[in-house]
């Protein structure tokens, strides 16, 4: 596509300073998302998918720091913005839904107070207008009797309702770009289905661009247009969703798909990936997957494989792709 993507991430690098030396949690990650599209980022714990999102929101805290790269939102590099200017963007133009609504919401403030705080800052409106807006948003995400819930504290809501409140809050200032960080991981399947349906409907209605992070291959395959697979802080593979699941090219992607019990498909034994995810400070020098890979070649240990486009729109970082 020739039109400019809404979000362009170029060579993003986030480093944490630890006693054991600097840990590069996100290492040279690049991707872009076009307007109205959903990019799914999938990977196991510690692969850097959440740190990538926090880096975009500039919410990385000491001892971590974004050490390189660009994040262009509508052509503007938000990593270069002053903290004050970033506060305008965060919660306004771009918003985030966090994984655990119980820890993301402030337990001693009402839902309404927390929503007003954000709406009044970004919409520059009166408390009365803000309250109307907040209640309208709570209604939009399907919370029953929103006027009462406006005065509720987070602990008075169930898990699914809390997550809805989070979504209402994130969407209250009409963001063009939404980051959803494992928004359904803590929820039951039937509630998960409700929340996914809600995010999809709102995305359509508001023409939002979404970055959706999860470790669940099933969820990712149903909700995203494009998928990025991460491992050890790096991108393994990027492709359109159906292409990725039909023709996975990186051995890690293929193994990940094969190791998941697939509904309606009976196998005696599951394919496994031997070993476990390496700790971030003991990542191998070359490809991060080298120690667990079944297709390892001599060059894999020494050099990092570059991300190469092997088919139109299908990029893979591997010296010996499938």
């Amino acid at each position: 596509m020739s039109i400019q993507p809404l979000l362009e991430v170029k060579n993003l690098e986030t480093t944490f300073r630890t006693k054991a030396g600097p840990v590069r949690a996100v290492n040279n990650v690049s991707y872009d998302i076009h307007k109205g599209q959903t990019l799914g980022i999938v990977g196991e714990s510690g692969c850097g998918k959440s740190v990538t999102s926090y880096s975009l929101m500039r919410l990385i805290e000491h001892p971590g720091r974004v050490t390189g790269g660009q994040v262009l939102l509508n052509g503007r590099d938000i990593l270069k913005l002053s903290e004050g200017a970033m506060e305008e963007v965060r919660g306004g133009e771009m918003a985030m839904i966090f994984q655990e609504p119980m820890t993301a919401l402030n337990p001693v403030l009402t839902i309404g107070f927390q929503m007003d705080e954000q709406i009044m800052k970004h919409k520059k409106c009166s408390p009365k207008e803000s309250k109307e807006r907040a209640i309208e948003m709570l209604r939009l995400v399907g919370i029953p009797s929103p006027e009462e819930r406006y005065n509720s504290y987070p602990h008075q809501l169930s898990g699914g309702m809390r997550q809805r409140a989070m979504i209402a809050m994130a969407l209250s200032c009409d963001p063009t770009f939404l980051i959803a960080d494992e928004p359904t991981t803590a929820l039951d399947v039937t509630i998960q289905a409700q929340i996914l349906e809600l995010i999809q409907n709102l995305q359509e209605k508001l023409n939002m661009t979404v970055q959706f992070i999860t470790h669940d291959l099933g969820v990712i395959s149903e909700i995203s247009d494009r998928v990025m697979v991460m491992y050890g802080g790096q991108t393994c593979e990027q492709a359109d969703t159906s292409e990725l699941f039909l023709n996975p090219s990186h051995p890690y992607t293929a193994a990940l798909i094969a190791s998941r019990p697939k509904f309606g498909e009976r196998v005696q034994r599951l394919t496994t990936i031997e070993g476990s995810v390496p700790a971030p400070f003991e990542l191998p020098k070359g490809c991060p997957f080298v120690n667990r890979c079944s297709r390892v070649k001599s060059e894999c240990a020494g050099t990092k494989p570059p991300l190469i486009e092997i088919r139109p729109g299908h990029k893979v970082a591997c010296f010996n792709p499938l």
């Binding site: 399947v189 039937t190 409700q194 395959s221 909700i223 699941f245 509904f263």
Partner: peptide, 15 residues
């Protein structure tokens, strides 16, 4: 409600 792997993006059914 089970998300199916590899069926591509779809409109969520009424859950």
């Amino acid at each position: 409600a089970i998300p199916r792997v590899g069926q591509g993006k779809k409109k969520m059914k009424k859950s």
